[in-house]
Design a protein around this nucleic acid. Structure first.
Length: 201
DNA sequence: GTTAAGATCTGCT
DNA sequence: GCAGATCTTAACG
């Protein structure tokens, strides 16, 4: 069995981390209860040759967490309403991360529904970066948080280690470097932010 | 101090 | 399928 943190998150290139995180669990605990989900969609943001990455123009107050140690959270606020949640990767000081775009809800569906505040189907509870953060009550006070620890942490799914069929597509919602194939999804999942057309292994 | 743009979501056409 | 909401961040004066 691989070790999610020591071997994958700390020891791999960002693209490989983005792919490897698929199928593993994200847990979130609050006073209201616990919620969890399986990661089904990620995107890699690189420091070199990637103008879409927030770190491409150096460290600022907003993206400072992206330069922290691998396995910590980088969370930022966008479009006036929504947060996005990233797992920091690469060597400390480099500025790379993996955006978690969607999870398949597993535990705490009612709590997620309540937080989302809308009567949505299970498929639409956390199938997008903003929705995911809302359902999991993730906001910027968790910026820089160590994802090995409560109340927000990643858990290895030993059943699926390396066994997930992955589709690779261009990233979503960016205007620069939009052609790079750095979005990774679980093939055929019903919980993606968008349906796939391009299928690669 | 002011302004423009953004790794989105929702509702309406 | 498309436009509007909404506000923080960063660049510029």
């Amino acid at each position: 069995m691989i070790s999610l943190f020591e071997n994958v998150i700390s020891g791999s290139k960002t693209e490989e981390v983005a792919r490897a995180l698929l199928g593993h669990f994200l847990f979130r605990e609050t006073g209201e209860g616990a919620v969890s989900g399986i990661i089904v969609e990620t995107e890699a943001y690189l420091s070199e040759n990637d103008p879409a990455c927030h770190a491409s123009r150096g460290m600022t107050r907003r993206n400072a967490a992206m330069f922290g140690p691998a396995g910590t959270a980088y969370i930022y606020f966008i479009y006036g309403n929504y947060h996005c949640f990233n797992v920091v990767t690469g060597p400390e000081g480099k500025g790379e991360a993996v955006l978690i775009r969607a999870v398949e809800p597993v535990e705490g569906l009612e709590l997620m529904l309540q937080r989302r505040g809308r009567p949505v189907k299970k498929e639409n509870l956390a199938n997008g970066p903003g929705k995911l953060c809302q359902a999991f009550a993730i906001d910027k006070h968790l910026n820089g948080h160590d994802l090995r620890r409560k109340p927000l942490y990643l858990v290895q799914n030993g059943v699926v280690d390396g066994q997930v069929e992955v589709a690779v597509t261009p990233r979503i919602g960016i205007t620069s470097a939009a052609d790079k194939l750095l979005r990774f999804t679980v093939s055929g999942s019903n919980y993606l932010s968008r349906r796939d057309c391009a299928w690669t292994k």
